[in-house]
C-alpha cells in the first residue's frame, strides 16, 4: 500500500469529530464520505486522495461506537490510520468491517512522519517505508486473531 500522509498531531480524536452526530442518520457510504473529519478539519474531503493514510496521536477513535467513523474515512479513500493507540470499538470496527487498517506506531515513528510524507506500508514484512525521508520503520505484527480477520477480508469472511 502506497499513499501520502494527512497528519493530525493530536490525541483523543473522537468519533464525534470524525463523523459528527447529526449525520448518524445517514447510512449511504458515499454520502458519509462528504462529512468525514468535519468536526476537526473542514477541508479534509477536498484534500484527501484515494490511498491516503491518517497519522495521529493517542486514543484515536474514542467516544461512540458509530461504525460511520471508519466507514466515512474508508469511503473517503483512507486505507490505514497510523496512531499511537486506538479506542477499542473504532479498532474492531475497522478490522471486522474491513474498512481500513488500524496500525499502532511508536512515539519515534509518530514524530518522524510529517504531513504530506509518502509512505509504503508492508504488513507482511511488518514495516513502513517513508519514501520521502528514505527511512524504514518496524511495526508490531497484528495480534493473531486480528491478523487472520484482516487476511480473510473481515469478520464475516473469517472461519473460526
Amino acid at each position: 500500500m502506497k499513499g501520502s500522509v494527512i497528519k493530525y498531531e493530536q490525541d483523543n480524536i473522537d468519533t464525534d469529530v470524525i463523523l459528527p452526530g447529526p449525520y448518524l442518520k445517514i447510512h449511504d457510504y458515499d454520502e458519509l464520505a462528504k462529512h468525514a473529519m468535519e468536526g476537526l478539519d473542514k477541508d479534509f474531503h477536498k484534500k484527501v486522495k484515494p490511498g491516503d493514510f491518517i497519522v495521529a496521536g493517542r486514543n484515536f477513535g474514542c467516544g461512540s461506537s458509530r461504525e460511520h467513523a471508519p466507514i466515512a474515512l474508508s469511503s473517503s479513500g483512507i486505507k490505514a490510520v497510523l496512531a499511537l493507540s486506538f479506542a477499542r470499538i473504532f479498532y474492531r470496527n475497522a478490522v471486522d468491517g474491513a474498512f481500513l487498517l488500524p496500525i499502532e506506531i511508536d512515539e519515534n515513528v509518530y514524530k518522524d512522519i510529517s504531513d504530506g510524507d509518502s509512505l509504503e506500508i508492508d504488513t507482511a514484512k511488518n514495516e513502513i517505508k517513508n519514501l520521502t525521508k528514505n527511512k524504514t520503520y518496524k511495526i508490531k505484527p497484528f495480534p493473531d486473531l486480528i491478523g487472520k480477520i484482516i487476511a480473510a477480508g473481515g469478520l464475516f469472511n473469517y472461519k473460526p
Binding site: 467516544g63 461512540s64 461506537s65 458509530r66 461504525e67 471508519p70 470499538i89 474492531r92 470496527n93 471486522d96 468491517g97 473481515g154 469478520l155 464475516f156
Partner: peptide, 26 residues
C-alpha cells in the same frame, strides 16, 4: 449493544459492552 454506552448495564452484574454495526450483525 450497538452503542458505546452499553457498558451502563454492567451495574446489573452482567458483562455489557458496546459494538459496531458489523459486529452486531455478526
Amino acid at each position: 449493544g450497538g452503542d458505546s454506552h452499553t457498558n451502563t448495564t454492567g451495574a446489573l452484574g452482567a458483562f455489557a459492552a458496546g459494538l459496531g454495526h458489523t459486529d452486531v450483525a455478526y
